[in-house]
């Protein structure tokens, strides 16, 4: 019964969103047809924006993202995982401190997984709390991503006894990505950290055996960085 209602609600919400999207598109088309000059101007603006400093862009992006999120939250019912996230945050605040994280949110794109963005210096402490207090005993995934403005480490943790998941993220300085290793907490982080070191160039301090696991020690550069130039370009 509950499920049916839920799906119905979801459907309604989706329909609403669709209608809104159609409206927006129509609006856009109308504006575009109003004047070609406007279009050109917009293009110029876009180019200028692209040229603008990356940091600013990122900030704008983040802002846009947050506003989007707000919009979503206002239109769609709250996620079932919201209370869980609140609990995690409470415990983290109590154990590590109120300013230990940059932000936290429910990632609706990824099956509503609670996501916590840690600060580099509190990353290890939060991981410790997640493992010891919240019983996230299973490290399902660890990898890095080069976002050009920064490098991000993405850790997906599961709690087998509670059947919960959480994502711990941290943003690192792109020029010197350095972060404590999670191997002391989860032995399963060993090879994934090696892989992240190999392909993105993140250094994990305290890792027992950090090596270039896939490409070999003589490889030059970090292939998954966006500015990587393959030395046999054109092949």
């Amino acid at each position: 019964m509950d499920k049916n209602e839920l799906t119905r609600l979801k459907k309604e919400a989706a329909e609403k969103a669709k209608a809104a999207a159609i409206k927006r598109r129509q609006e856009k088309e109308r504006q575009a047809s109003e004047s070609g000059q406007d279009l050109e101007l917009a293009k110029k603006k876009a180019a200028a924006a692209a040229k603008a400093k990356a940091a600013a862009a990122a900030r704008a992006k983040a802002k846009a993202a947050s506003t989007e999120k707000k919009e979503e939250e206002s239109s769609v019912e709250p996620s079932p995982n919201e209370p869980l996230l609140q609990r995690y945050i409470q415990i983290i605040e109590r154990q590590v401190g109120t300013d230990s994280y940059e932000e936290y949110y429910i990632n609706r794109l990824s099956k509503d997984v609670p996501t916590i963005l840690a600060k580099p210096h509190t990353y290890m402490d939060i991981a410790q709390v997640l493992k010891q207090q919240l019983h996230f005993d299973f490290l399902a995934e660890l990898h890095g991503t080069d976002f050009e403005t920064h490098i991000e480490v993405y850790v997906y943790l599961c709690s087998l006894q509670n059947g919960q998941s959480v994502v711990l993220k941290v943003k690192l300085d792109r020029d010197n990505p350095m972060i404590p290793s999670l191997v002391p907490l989860w032995k399963g982080a060993d090879w994934p950290e090696c892989e992240a070191y190999d392909l993105i160039g993140i250094k994990f301090s305290g890792h027992p055996n950090l090596k270039r696991i896939l490409l070999g020690e003589d490889w030059i550069g970090y292939p998954l960085r966006k500015d990587y130039k393959p030395h046999d370009e054109g092949v």
């Binding site: 990632n107 990824s110 099956k111 997984v113």
Partner: peptide, 10 residues
């Protein structure tokens, strides 16, 4: 074109 954001699915 999936929306902007990230997802991890197992």
């Amino acid at each position: 074109k999936p929306p902007k954001g990230e997802a991890f699915i197992r």
